[in-house]
C-alpha cells in the first residue's frame, strides 16, 4: 500500500504538486491500481530474462558526420522565456 507520505515523495520526484483535497483521492486511486498490479506476484519469474524491447534489434549506428544544426533562432523559437541567445529560467534557490 502506498501511503500519503509516499505519494508526496513521488509527486516531488515527478515535479508535480498535489493539493490536500486531491491527495486522498489520488492515494486511493493509486492503491486500487497497485493492488491490481500486485497480482504479478502470483507468478514465479526466477531466471526469466527481463524484456525491454519487443523486437531484437542490435547495433543501430550513425556515422560521425556533422549535419547543419537548426540554428539558435530556431532552437529558441518555442521557448516560453528566451533572452538573447539563451533559454531563461528562474534561478535555483539553494
Amino acid at each position: 500500500m502506498i501511503s500519503k507520505q509516499e505519494v508526496e515523495y513521488v509527486a516531488h520526484l515527478a515535479r508535480l504538486e498535489i493539493d490536500d483535497a486531491q491527495k486522498d483521492k489520488f492515494t486511493s486511486q493509486l492503491n486500487d491500481i497497485l493492488l491490481y498490479i500486485d497480482k504479478l506476484n502470483e507468478l514465479d519469474t526466477k531466471g526469466v530474462e527481463p524484456m525491454s524491447h519487443a523486437i531484437a534489434v542490435t547495433n543501430a549506428f550513425r556515422d560521425d558526420k556533422v549535419v547543419e544544426s537548426i540554428g539558435t533562432e530556431s532552437s529558441l523559437a518555442n521557448a516560453p522565456d528566451a533572452r538573447g541567445e539563451f533559454f531563461r529560467v528562474p534561478k535555483v534557490i539553494e
Binding site: 521557448a79 516560453p80 529560467v89 534561478k91 534557490i93
Partner: peptide
C-alpha cells in the same frame, strides 16, 4: 518542464516552483 517549449506557469518563485 517549461524551459524549451510549450506552456510555462506564470507564477514561479524559483526553479523548483516553476517545474512543479
Amino acid at each position: 518542464d517549461g524551459v524549451k517549449y510549450g506552456f510555462r506557469t506564470a507564477e514561479a518563485r524559483d526553479l523548483l516552483d516553476m517545474y512543479k
